[in-house]
């Protein structure tokens, strides 16, 4: 009895102390563009206009009014003692609608599979340019609303394309083997929580901009901030 309560008390101490010593911090910030915004040519759509529309801005560079960059991928590298990725209980959804993939950049934890949905009344083909993982190229006619992908096993960034609507429909899968990954939102903002304290390399990647790498110091005491300005390639 007595012994048991000592053990229990010890556990309480460890749990209570944990956050103070092996502390975790977070990183948040914003991704911007340096220099003038490049001219983004509107795509004139000639095929399947009833579904795809007549014109659209390409998904390859989406900027806010203040030149904040959406769809940049922020990765904290080599987090020692970090948590493993969690594979969600339900497959992650990846949607084709209005001849557009949503989301444009999808983080896929290693071990997860996707439910690929076609909400358009036309055929798309989901074609991945995977190198490490098994590549996909499957036709998805309107009669096939859902395809379940195999599990993604190896970390890599994979280009995704519909060849039938090439130039209009592209996306990226970021297969990650750690949970310290985020994608910037429409205002360029991102945040990553629960990072063990330490000094790490952070990589910021965007499909049409120059890659950026820098160090960040994560501490439990206060949230680390990261403002990055990406240059044109």
């Amino acid at each position: 009895m007595k012994k048991g309560s000592v053990v229990l008390a010890g556990m309480v101490v460890v749990l209570a102390v944990g956050p103070v010593f092996g502390a975790e911090g977070s990183l948040s910030g914003r991704i911007k563009l340096t220099g003038d915004a490049p001219e983004v040519k509107t795509i004139t759509i000639t095929k399947d206009q009833e579904v795809c529309g007549k014109e659209r801005k390409p998904d390859s560079l989406i900027l806010s009014k203040n030149n904040e960059v959406a769809n940049a991928v922020i990765v904290i590298k080599d987090v020692k003692g970090g948590k493993p990725v969690t594979v969600p209980a339900k497959n992650i959804e990846f949607i084709q609608k209005g001849c557009q993939f949503t989301p444009h950049v999808l983080v896929v934890p290693v071990g997860a599979a996707l439910d690929i949905l076609n909400k358009d009344p036309i055929t798309h083909n989901i074609h991945t340019f995977a190198v490490e993982n098994t590549p996909l190229n499957k036709a998805q006619p309107k009669t096939l609303p859902k395809i379940t992908s195999p599990k993604f096993e190896f970390p890599e960034t994979i280009k995704v394309q519909c060849d039938i609507h090439r130039g209009l429909m592209s996306a990226w899968f970021v297969v990650a083997d750690n949970p310290y990954v985020a994608v910037s939102d429409a205002s360029g903002a991102f945040s990553i929580k629960g990072i063990p304290e330490g000094t790490y390399k952070v990589e910021v990647w965007h499909e049409t901009l120059k890659k950026h790498t820098q160090e960040v110091v994560i501490s439990g005491a206060k949230e680390a901030k990261l403002e990055v300005a990406l240059a044109k390639k």
Partner: peptide, 14 residues
């Protein structure tokens, strides 16, 4: 089976 490495997709699911 589709033709891997080309736009020709597999229609096996349909």
């Amino acid at each position: 089976t589709g033709l891997n490495g080309t736009p020709m997709p597999s229609f096996a699911d349909s």
